[in-house]
Amino acid sequence: MKSRLSSLFLVLFASVSLFACIDEDSTYQSILLRDIEAIDAYIAENPIDAVQEFHDDDAGFHIFWESVSNSGDTAQYLDTLKTDYIGMLLTNKVFDTSIDSVAIANDIYNSNRNYVPIQFLQGNNSLIYGFQLGVSMMAEGDVATVIMPSAFAYGTGGSNDGSVPSNSPIIFKIDFVELKKATQ
């Protein structure tokens, strides 16, 4: 009997200790809620003129179209896309771009890099999820601003180069330049 009580106490103690170590402020849900609050505040302080909008308020994901091409040419899995982009934090600090004049103006120019539209295969996970999701909702020729929570971007680790801190919602201004359909 004493052995059972000891075992039960040990299991109870281990459970309490385990749950006491979990920081409520670093759970996925709490990070998402903070991101959504920050995104909503950004949008309120920085209204975006849009001809079309998409909002998933539960996920904190927003797209504001500056222009809609009406081409109807949307990307499917493994289509090749070219996009120009500007990546920013919610402070409007540019952390990455495919446009040399934007890189120069924001003091992030790298002479070892080619500033041309980025080319990628849709859905092959070579880019952050939120970027590919945003482009998947655009058509060739569209220009849009995509705002996403950190879980859709660089998550808890931040970017490898440190330009995007951990748990940072981000913005991409995307110009969907070209679409080449995958061969069937």
Score class of each variant (00 low, 15 high):
Leu78Asp: 10
Val94Gly: 07
Thr97Leu: 05
Gly123Leu: 02
Val102Gln: 05
Tyr109Met: 00
Thr97Ile: 09
Leu89Ser: 11
Asn110Lys: 03
Val102Pro: 09
Asn70Trp: 01
Leu78Gln: 08
Asn92Ser: 12
Ser111Cys: 03
Asn124Ser: 12
Thr80Gly: 11
Thr74Asp: 00
Val102Ile: 15
Gln76Cys: 03
Lys82Ile: 02
Gln119Thr: 15
Ile86Tyr: 04
Leu121His: 09
Tyr115Pro: 04
Ile86Val: 15
Val116Gly: 06
Ser101Trp: 00
Gly72Asn: 05
Tyr109Ser: 01
Thr91Glu: 05
Thr80Asp: 09
Val116Glu: 15
Asn70Ala: 10
Thr91His: 04
Ser71Pro: 06
Arg113Leu: 15
Ala103Cys: 14
Ile104Gly: 10
Asn92Gln: 13
Asp100Asn: 08
Pro117Tyr: 03
Ile108Lys: 02
Asn92Ile: 03
Asp100Glu: 15
Thr74Trp: 00
Gly87Trp: 06
Val116Ser: 14
Asp96Met: 11
Ala103Phe: 10
Phe120Pro: 13
Ile86Cys: 02
Asp73Trp: 05
Ile86Gln: 01
Asp73Ile: 10
Thr83Val: 15
Lys82Asp: 07
Asp107Ile: 05
Leu81Arg: 00
Gln122Gly: 06
Ala103Pro: 15
Leu89His: 08
Asn114Lys: 13
Tyr77Phe: 14
Thr74Glu: 00
Asn112Met: 10
Thr74Phe: 00
Gln122Ser: 13
Phe120Thr: 14
Ser101Ala: 09
Phe120Leu: 11
Val116Gln: 14
Gln76Ala: 10
